[in-house]
Nucleic acid binder design. Sequence first.
RNA 1: GCUCCGUUCGUCUAGUGGUUAGGACGCCAGAUUUUCAUUCUGGUAGCAGGGGUUCGACUCCCCUACGGAGUACCA
Length: 512
Amino acid sequence: MDKDVRVRFAPSPTGALHIGGVRTALYNYLFARKTGGTMILRIEDTDQTRYVPGAEEYIQEALAWAGIELNESPWTGGPFAPYRQSERKASYMEYAQKLVNEGNAYYAFDTPEELEAMRERLKAARVANPQYDALSRMQMRNSLTMPEDEVKARITSGEPYVIRIKVPRKEEIRLNDLIRGWVMVHSATLDDKVLMKSDGMPTYHLANVVDDYLMKISHVIRGEEWLPSAPIHVLLYKFLGWEEQMPQFAHLPLILKPDGNGKLSKRDAERHGFPIFPLQWTDPNGGEQVAGFREEGYLPDALVNFLAFLGWSPGSTEELFTMPQLIEAFSLERIGKAGTKFDIDKAKWYNQQYLRMRSDDELTRMLQEQLDKNEVEYAPETARKVALEIKERAVFPQDLWKDGAVYFIRPARYDEAVAAKKWNAEAATIIEQFADAVENSSQALTAEGAKNLLQEVLDKNNVKIGRVMQAVRLALTGLGSGPDLMNMIEIIGNKETAERLRTALHQLQVNG
RNA sequence: GCUCCGUUCGUCUAGUGGUUAGGACGCCAGAUUUUCAUUCUGGUAGCAGGGGUUCGACUCCCCUACGGAGUACCA
């Protein structure tokens, strides 16, 4: 019988959400929607020393921006609240206690120095796997090596202690990962992980198992970095008597740096000049500011599409998928096993595709935003025409402004290389006559009208169009490249056109 | 070191014993164009290596190499 699908994304609020985290959240979300299940967000804040103010708000805003909706979370609430582990603190000790009572966990009083000494000792003895385990625990200070009343006395006297899982000495632990198949680990290679810390908080291992059980999580979809500790989690389900309710696991391939190898880091992103965080993030401590995809002009649906394809593919040759289409096509089986290098060029291509699919209204609004930001005066209908004129060549919304500025602002200077090559007496003559013709034109020039007018001038002087167009462009925009000039004349109008031509005639030296 | 995971064009990938190994990004070339971009067309380039199994392996098994992750009272 199938359980209801309930998945969770469980970030810890230690800073900005990494792009890999966004992908993990996305896969959880797609799976939940695809199966008609429930998407849950749980904040894993059991390490108070690493808590960063603002991180939670950041996570919330980032997911909302990406279009990842939450059915249950600290913000939306839900039947299994609270969704913050720090607020569930009370429940963990109960289960840890149960584990101790049943002989599956024990109290340990070792100081950090003693632990360090133990590791050194084992290393010196050339033990292959120096760790706190079945072999070494009987040499340590814990409830397995101390009389019961001494343990009690230490605890009641307030001596700090942790609770460790008692990993069986010899046992095959098997787990059927949905992406990797059967994974088998021998218990002897596992160490007695701390379950409850001396500050009374659980570690990830205990907290995630307890909460996943209590929240009736059906599938744990998380990064591959968790695979090595998954056997510990399996053991906990077993010890707690929850084997039947144990969720299915799916460990996602990692996102790697674009060159060389290794996990993608903030440093790699900076080195290559692309963001790694969905939103801009300001470190509340250092005040350091790092870029976000959103601020760099990436469209959320483009980023989502790109991210979805980083480790997953629908099996068809289509590449453009909106969120509903992703949901429709998604399946865990089609997630790859191998790590994936981050390719920003592909992300840019997606952005370009999505940008040009935006409606005329949206494109216009994007340009207007840039115009306002740059304090440029404009007529709304002009902004619209320019936006449509630029749209095919833009990758980011800010390109609309970058390439569109010439429609609103006269050239402040003229590209010297182009001037040297294309500006000559012949061109100047044509441009002068063209300026006259534009001024004398009784009606507002259309692109076609402008073209005809120019052609007349050219014919009269017996000059081919290719010889002067670049000069006209230079006169109108100051640049050597750009969108169609005749359309530009129509957009900026007769007067502006003529004035720009005159100014250029004035400013540019004729040589040759 | 130890444990686990992985390995198809530069990159993302399709491919589940018999394919000219397909697509996309990038790159290169050509066409179009008033330039650049767009668009279109074409091209470049790959099964890590070695053993098996089989009539036949990219596909299944083993080994090696290489890469990654984990190895905290962090998640």
